[in-house]
Amino acid sequence: MQLVEITDANREAVCALRVHPGQERFVTGVARSLEQAAAIPEAEPWFRAVYAGDEPVGFVMLSWNVPPGRPGILGPYYLWRLLVDGRFQGLGYGTAILDAVVALVRADGATELLTSHHPAEDGPGPFYRKYGFVPTGEVDDGEPVLRLDLTAPHLA
């Protein structure tokens, strides 16, 4: 698994990635995510395609090292989007993506990673909690905010 920049050469293939139909209410697609990144530069968006060999299998987007005091922007490091194509779910890619993201943001000096999720029972909350994220008690746009302590020794 590798994180790859999105370019004109791979944009169409990456934008074609889709979660299972029942999950579409939980995660915005790649094309819309890229539009959001362009529309909200103050969120310091950082995004990559996720590849297994030569095939795109997912997408990840973060707010990267956002300076304090930007209203409405969680951070400094916030996992904004994590998408694994439906064909590749259940194969460990979600965890591998989080492992790679944790290593990158930790190397950048981060001590925590935030995310939020749709609060439905069949949503991604259990996945994040199993990884080690814990609720902060905050809610952002109707979604509970979770925190991962990057100083914890058990993380990659």
Rank of each mutant, 00 (worst) to 15 (best):
V134Q: 11
E44R: 14
L79T: 02
V134F: 03
R106N: 05
G72H: 01
E44V: 02
Y128L: 02
A120W: 06
R87M: 12
G137W: 02
G86Y: 10
F88Y: 15
H118L: 12
E112I: 03
T28S: 08
G123D: 10
E44Q: 14
P153F: 05
L114Q: 02
V84D: 00
V60L: 07
L148M: 12
P68F: 04
S63M: 01
V145W: 09
A31V: 13
P124N: 00
G29I: 12
D149W: 04
V134Y: 02
L34T: 08
A9M: 03
P126C: 10
A120V: 03
G53K: 05
A152S: 07
E24C: 09
L83K: 03
A31F: 15
F88K: 07
V19G: 03
V57Y: 13
G109N: 07
Y93M: 04
V4I: 13
V60N: 05
C15W: 05
D122Y: 09
Y128E: 02
L3P: 05
E12D: 13
C15M: 13
L82D: 00
H118E: 14
G58N: 10
R129C: 14
S63W: 01
C15A: 15
F47P: 00
R106M: 06
F26I: 01
P45L: 08
D108F: 03
R32C: 11
L83Q: 05
R70A: 09
A38E: 15
R129H: 14
Y128Q: 01
P67F: 07
R81N: 12
P56W: 11
A49W: 08
R18A: 15
E12T: 05
E138I: 00
P76G: 05
R81A: 02
R25F: 07
V14K: 05
L34C: 14
A37D: 14
V27M: 11
S116M: 01
D108N: 09
P41H: 10
R32K: 13
D140V: 00
D99F: 14
P126K: 06
E121H: 04
E5W: 06
G29P: 06
R70E: 10
P21F: 15
W64R: 11
Y77Q: 06
T136M: 11
P71F: 01
G75F: 09
L104I: 03
A120F: 07
I40S: 02
P135M: 06
M61L: 13
G125V: 03
Y93Q: 02
A16D: 15
F88R: 09
W64D: 10
F59D: 07
V30H: 10
D54M: 10
A38C: 09
S33E: 14
G22H: 12
Q2F: 04
P76T: 03
H20E: 13
G94R: 01
E138D: 14
G86K: 12
A152R: 04
